[in-house]
Amino acid sequence: MAAGGDHGSPDSYRSPLASRYASPEMCFVFSDRYKFRTWRQLWLWLAEAEQTLGLPITDEQIQEMKSNLENIDFKMAAEEEKRLRHDVMAHVHTFGHCCPKAAGIIHLGATSCYVGDNTDLIILRNALDLLLPKLARVISRLADFAKERASLPTLGFTHFQPAQLTTVGKRCCLWIQDLCMDLQNLKRVRDDLRFRGVKGTTGTQASFLQLFEGDDHKVEQLDKMVTEKAGFKRAFIITGQTYTRKVDIEVLSVLASLGASVHKICTDIRLLANLKEMEEPFEKQQIGSSAMPYKRNPMRSERCCSLARHLMTLVMDPLQTASVQWFERTLDDSANRRICLAEAFLTADTILNTLQNISEGLVVYPKVIERRIRQELPFMATENIIMAMVKAGGSRQDCHEKIRVLSQQAASVVKQEGGDNDLIERIQVDAYFSPIHSQLDHLLDPSSFTGRASQQVQRFLEEEVYPLLKPYESVMKVKAELCL
């Protein structure tokens, strides 16, 4: 049975990233139509530049190519590739079939990587351009969430054990800070992308030097003109047959890092959902379990974690691919890159769409948070109580021993009897502590235990987050809708 299948058929496997999760716009960027249309555009740009620099290419040939950029006979191309065992030459023939007058000058002087690699770089750039505003929107939604809850005390956790208090907004800023680093890295790697350009079979530009009869300047002009037509500021000066596969490492490393950030955020949300302090959106008709109707599973956060793990592992592909590119190139890269580049971007696209949807509907339960604080705060307040007693004339050592005994009794009630923490009640009825009984409410005010959390939130948002989001103001209103 021949390899390949009808990918629109229910009898043929289709990647869930495309069929179930990723956005239509990201799927289109990695589609065959987008790819092969870009090949034709690159052939047109090459012909236009070659004509401008004096090669015998007519206006009629150029116009014929322009008129057929979208006229792609995919069936013919597939048949040609089956016959020739070469995808680029299959599309040269297919393009030439609908451009008979231009057929002889299509791909003039070029090698397969002229269309293959340059198209990949265009796709990487455009895919990054799709991700950047999506990530900015996630940051914006979380920034709104953090600002609104900047002063809401909550129990902090280290080692997932109760620690000092923080605020809900401050905790959210930990998430935002990681995503801001990801946004900066995505922008950097996007701006650092260079075009492969017009380089020939081993990167020496020998074929173009021959076409222009040894004119170095025209060869350099050709490279520059096509690079500018493709919208790049610069091209690699040095290439082998391909652009260095280190570029793929750079791009997928940034995406993998984004995956790590999203995994951490969504894990926190899942843990908070278990504590009943916070939940992701839950639709009115949504079913959490087929057997347990009360369940409210954090399905979206779980999906993000599941896909983020996949995204983090994909960076190993370009690392290994770059390491086995012998001399000017081997074909070890080809099949692998067809999979890992598309999957990385479709996965990143999915987790950003999902995280935006989550961040637009996060639900906080202040009463649950308050109750958990009441359970733990008495123990945390013991040092403040000791200091207040010393100020009232008591002995630190005597007070410490009193607190120690009462704390152990209260802990026994919590752990052995399943009761509430009654340390404060014990202190309130103990005559030894009568000098500070009137101060206990103040000493137990949760806001006095959150330090500068709310001020940190305000400063972080104003100095770091809002300036970073400013270039994306025009796209901030787009909502994230999930079908599944």
Rank of each mutant, 00 (worst) to 15 (best):
Q184E: 15
P378S: 08
S412V: 15
K82Y: 08
R234S: 12
V92E: 12
L482K: 13
E343I: 02
V413M: 14
S253M: 15
A90L: 01
A411V: 10
T204Y: 01
K284F: 13
Q41R: 15
S412M: 06
E473K: 15
I139F: 00
I424T: 12
P133N: 03
P56M: 08
E250I: 15
D117H: 03
L406D: 08
L17C: 13
Q164M: 11
S301L: 08
H159Y: 00
W326E: 02
S412W: 09
A392R: 07
M26P: 11
V115T: 07
I427G: 06
H442M: 15
S412N: 15
T450D: 00
S447D: 10
R196V: 12
Q241P: 00
F433Q: 03
L128G: 15
S19M: 02
P298K: 01
P293K: 03
T267H: 07
K470S: 15
K35Y: 10
A136T: 14
S474L: 14
H400R: 01
Q177M: 11
T347Y: 04
T94F: 02
W45D: 15
A22L: 10
G96D: 09
D441F: 15
N336V: 10
K477W: 12
I269Y: 02
Y472S: 15
D120P: 00
S454W: 06
L271M: 06
P10T: 14
A431S: 06
R404K: 09
S301T: 01
Q241V: 00
C113K: 06
G169E: 06
A18L: 07
P56H: 11
S9G: 05
T330C: 15
S112L: 04
F95D: 02
L468M: 09
Q325H: 13
I139R: 01
E79C: 10
R372F: 06
M292E: 01
V88L: 08
Q375M: 04
Y13N: 14
C483N: 15
Q41C: 13
Q397R: 08
Y365M: 12
M299D: 02
S447I: 09
Y365A: 06
H400Y: 06
E463Q: 15
E401G: 12
F28K: 11
L461W: 10
I424C: 14
K224V: 09
D215A: 12
G116E: 02
Q286I: 00
E425Q: 11
N185E: 12
R171D: 00
Q455E: 14
Y21F: 12
F157D: 00
A18G: 14
L183V: 10
A260Q: 07
Q439H: 04
R85C: 14
L124W: 11
K187E: 13
L314I: 12
M476I: 12
G116N: 08
A110T: 11
Q161C: 03
G197Q: 01
Q286W: 01
D178K: 02
E50P: 00
G96F: 13
R234V: 15
Q320W: 09
L155M: 04
D216L: 09
S306R: 01
L135M: 14
V168T: 06
F145S: 14
L55C: 13
D11C: 15
A77F: 15
E328D: 10
K477A: 15
A2P: 12
E481V: 13
M389F: 08
T38S: 09
I339M: 04
G418I: 08
N118T: 15
L444C: 00
D32G: 11
R37G: 05
M225A: 08
V247Q: 09
D120L: 12
D333M: 01
L423H: 09
R296N: 05
A411S: 09
L444A: 04
Q455R: 12
V405L: 10
K415C: 11
V324N: 08
G5N: 09
E50L: 10
P56Y: 03
R396Q: 00
T52P: 09
F195I: 14
R20Q: 05
P100E: 10
R374N: 01
K229G: 01
A342C: 00
K101R: 12
R125D: 10
E370K: 02
F74N: 14
E148S: 12
D87V: 01
V251E: 07
M278T: 05
G200M: 01
R303I: 09
R374G: 09
F28L: 04
L377Q: 00
A90C: 04
L174N: 15
P435Y: 07
M312I: 12
E463P: 02
K147A: 14
A110I: 07
R37I: 14
Q61G: 12
L319T: 03
E343H: 11
K367R: 11
S438K: 10
V414Y: 04
Q455F: 15
A47S: 08
F345A: 08
M225Q: 10
I139Q: 03
G259N: 04
H86Y: 00
K35F: 02
T227D: 06
E280Q: 06
Q416L: 10
E48S: 07
D333Q: 00
Q161R: 06
A150V: 08
L84G: 07
A230T: 08
I369V: 13
L209W: 09
V251T: 15
W43N: 05
K170C: 08
D430E: 15
S290W: 02
N126K: 07
S454D: 14
C98T: 03
Q205S: 07
I369F: 01
V189P: 11
E148K: 02
D430S: 11
F282P: 03
D215Q: 08
A3P: 04
F379A: 02
F433K: 03
I369T: 08
F212H: 03
T94L: 11
Q286S: 02
L130T: 13
L179C: 11
S261M: 01
G54F: 10
F232I: 11
D332F: 02
P366T: 14
A308R: 00
D6G: 10
T119H: 15
T227H: 13
Q164K: 00
M65R: 04
M292W: 04
D248E: 14
M76Y: 07
S438T: 15
T450V: 11
S359D: 12
H159E: 09
L443R: 05
K479W: 15
G451C: 05
P435T: 09
D430M: 14
Q456Y: 07
K470Y: 12
V198F: 06
L44K: 04
M387I: 10
K276N: 08
M225T: 14
E279I: 03
I57F: 05
V219Y: 06
Q397I: 07
Q375W: 07
P298S: 05
R329E: 00
S407Y: 01
S359E: 07
L193P: 03
D268R: 00
K218F: 09
A136G: 07
M312H: 07
I339Y: 14
L179W: 05
A146P: 03
L152M: 12
V189G: 14
F232N: 02
G394M: 12
A335V: 08
V138T: 11
E462W: 15
R171L: 05
L124G: 03
L355P: 03
R190Q: 11
E401Y: 11
T111R: 04
V465L: 12
L272N: 12
V413N: 10
K295T: 00
P467E: 13
F345R: 03
P446G: 05
P293F: 05
S359P: 14
A146V: 05
E401W: 13
R371G: 02
A342I: 15
R141F: 10
A143L: 12
R85I: 04
C99W: 05
P100W: 10
R234L: 06
E425P: 08
H442Q: 15
T154P: 01
K391Q: 09
L272V: 08
E79L: 09
Q428Y: 04
Q41G: 12
F208P: 01
F327L: 08
S257K: 10
I57N: 00
L131C: 06
E220C: 08
G156I: 00
S290P: 04
H442Y: 08
R171C: 02
V251L: 15
R309I: 06
R83Y: 12
A342W: 09
P133E: 14
F74G: 12
A49E: 06
I139W: 00
E48G: 02
V390K: 04
R188N: 04
Q177G: 12
H86M: 02
L377P: 02
V478P: 15
S448K: 11
